[in-house]
Design a protein around this nucleic acid. Structure first.
Length: 596
RNA sequence: GCGCCUGUAGCUCAGGUGGAUAGAGCAACGGACUUCUAAUCCGUGUGCCCGGGGUUCGAGUCCCUGCAGGCGCGCCA
């Protein structure tokens, strides 16, 4: 009876979910995303129920004493021989129950009712793990779910529509994009994709530093080149931008608008030229990033904070609250009470706000725009700014934990053994454009996102150029291309794939087939974990494992066999794998080629 | 001096909330294509997880400390 009920309810549950998915196909994206089937999660829940019921029975029978069940986990063991899932609860209870973990496990398992569940058998192993071996049926649900979900397979309703902003790259608009920006672009964009896939409402933002000191200097450098082009002998600003691009910008202005600017005041000349060149630079940055697969929702101008008075308002507010004060002609932000930190300048004695002041106003504005969480991706050289910024946010009543800064360690460029010293002034740095030309779009994206932002990375150009096959991205892409090839082959043999939802998958019994199914089922959990920890690089680990599982399946099992009962489920399995690979590659901004 | 990050195989790196025999790629060596793409698969590792303490049933993971490398500590951004 229990068995029947469980089977029936499970079936009804599945039917309901599937019909939800079916109906939702015509509905909006957002609604589609809410429908998700996390098999692994369901199974864990079921195991927990069985486990807890057993534990209560054991307690009721006076076999095990405890007051509270400790925080235990259900994990997927690395070793196949350790079962499909394992629980560590017996080991955690040992102390209070005053019994060896294995003994607890035995008593517990004896009280468990597994009849009618997905559990086939249970074992006690090692120091006291309770290992669960499941019936294979659950695996055969996997392909159907993947086909139901389509390009949404793997998405999870984790975020519940929480509004998250991801601000990344925000490169200095006076120059070109370098390797650090490239890393930030790959990580930021993948993270944004990932969060979106995990049910968050994501806004991608680029903060344009089009104000302040550097723009002033930028303008003066341009002005010098402009006048130089008109035959004047010039004195180049001491800390000016020496790059050739500056001179070229000035020349282009001259060609378009002539020499009329000479009659204007220096300040007007500088501002006009700076505006002209900034526009050029920004559109160049935008198109370069676009060619790297990155597009923004918002380009936020720092200058706008000056023009609409938000910086002034922010500082006034701080003064009013007694957090800032005037001294020696400057305005200072007080360090926290009792801390060893120094007070920070907000407005210089020359009357101009500092970058920090603008950034406070900027972050205040971010939260005023209603984001629940704000994620900034910064280079490690900005880490000194993090604590300050969090504190500044808290001064306006925002919980500083809502501001998350992901610091990336810097990228070191190598040519073989030799370190390439990057210098903007000398113009000896590699731009993102050049990188794309040398290494290629997919490899660059994958390479950057593969590594944990915390680790500093060497980018060896010679390696990247000479042996591109070393890059793991090809391993994954090849799996996808192979599947497409199988499907093409099937078509040319006249094999058509019937509705994958009506197939019987239980003929898939080879170890490599079962392993592949299990790996496919794992994606929603991987997405959830990666989104929770804000670590898109985990997805590359998953992709590699998935591709490996497929390559093994490919080697061991022939898909296009004449036996229809075997061929059809295998074709469907292959197709489901391709779909899954493509979904994850898309999150990483990498293409899924059909041929290689 | 203070702060942040890092230290895992020859090299490049993975190792959610502590779990069972620490993994992968590359490189090296030996096998597997008359069969859906060999950019693949299978096999071969003698790793003081930087050192030293500690926490506990159990530590690469947590705490303390030392060493080494990177990066910050501006009226720069």
């Amino acid at each position: 009876m229990v068995f029947l009920w469980r089977t029936l309810s499970c079936y009804l549950f599945l039917r309901e979910k599937i019909s939800q998915v079916k109906n939702s196909k015509e509905k909006a994206e957002g609604q589609r995303r809410r429908v998700t089937l996390r098999i692994i999660e369901e199974l864990k829940t079921e195991i927990k129920e069985v486990l807890m019921n057993g534990l209560e029975s054991a307690k009721a029978a006076g076999l095990i004493q405890y007051t509270k069940v400790p925080e235990y986990i259900i994990e997927i063991p690395r070793e196949k021989t350790h079962g499909d899932f394992a629980a560590n609860v017996a080991m955690l209870m040992a102390k209070e129950a005053k019994m060896p973990p294995r003994k607890i496990g035995e008593l517990l398992v004896a009280q468990m009712e597994i009849l009618g569940s997905n559990i086939e058998r249970v074992e006690i192993a090692g120091p006291g793990f309770i290992n669960f071996f499941l019936k294979k049926d659950w695996l055969y649900r996997v392909p159907k779910i993947i086909f139901q979900m389509g390009d949404q397979y793997g998405s999870v309703p984790l975020g519940g529509g929480e509004k998250v902003q991801v601000e990344f790259v925000s490169a200095n608009p006076t120059g070109l994009l370098h390797m650090g920006n490239a890393r930030g672009a790959a990580i930021g964009d993948s993270l944004a994709n990932l969060l979106q896939f995990a049910g968050y409402e994501v806004t991608r933002e680029f903060y344009v530093n089009d104000a302040g000191n550097q723009i002033h200097l930028f303008g003066r450098s341009l002005d010098a080149r402009y006048r130089e082009a008109l035959g004047e002998t010039i004195e180049f600003p001491e800390d000016g931008y020496h790059g050739e691009d500056i001179a070229l910008s000035a020349k282009r202005y001259l060609e378009q608008y002539g020499d009329a600017l000479l009659k204007e005041e220096e300040e007007v000349r500088c501002k006009t030229l700076a505006d002209f060149a900034l526009k050029e630079k920004l559109s160049h940055i935008e198109s370069t990033l676009k060619s790297f697969g990155v597009e923004y929702d918002v380009w936020f101008s720092e200058r706008s904070l000056y023009e609409n008075g938000k910086i002034k308002d922010t500082i006034d507010c701080l003064i009013k609250e007694g957090q800032a004060y005037e001294k020696e002609g400057a305005v200072w932000l007080k360090a926290p009470e009792g801390s060893e930190e120094k007070d920070e300048v907000l407005i210089r004695s020359n009357g101009l706000p500092t970058y920090f002041a603008a950034d406070i106003a900027y972050h205040r504005d971010k939260f005023q725009r209603g984001f629940d969480r704000v994620i900034n991706i910064w280079g490690a050289d900005h880490h000194g700014h993090v604590a300050r910024m969090k504190r500044a946010v808290s001064l306006f009543g925002t919980d500083p934990d809502r501001l998350i800064v992901i610091l990336m360690q810097l990228v070191r460029l190598m040519r073989g053994e030799e370190i390439v010293r990057m210098s903007k002034r000398a113009g000896t740095y590699l731009t993102l454009e050049e990188l794309l030309e040398e290494v290629g779009y997919d490899a660059a994206r994958y390479f950057f996102v593969m590594r944990n932002p915390d680790s500093q990375m060497d980018f060896d150009l010679e390696l990247a150029k000479s042996k591109t096959s070393e890059n793991p991205v090809f391993y994954v892409q090849y799996a996808h291309a192979r599947i497409c090839s199988i499907l093409r082959q099937a078509k040319s043999l006249g094999y058509s794939l019937p509705d994958p939802l009506s197939l019987d998958y239980s003929v898939l019994e080879d170890d490599s087939e079962l392993a592949l199914l299990a790996k496919l089922a794992d994606l929603p959990e991987e997405v959830a974990n990666s989104a929770l920890t804000l670590e898109p690089h985990r997805l590359t680990v998953y992709l590699h494992d998935l591709a490996a599982a497929f390559h093994l399946f490919y080697t061991n099992c022939r898909v296009n066999t004449p036996e229809e009962e075997l061929r059809n489920p295998r074709l469907a399995l292959a197709k489901a794998t391709a779909l899954t690979i493509k979904n994850v590659l898309t999150l990483l901004g990498v293409s899924a080629p059909e041929e290689m």
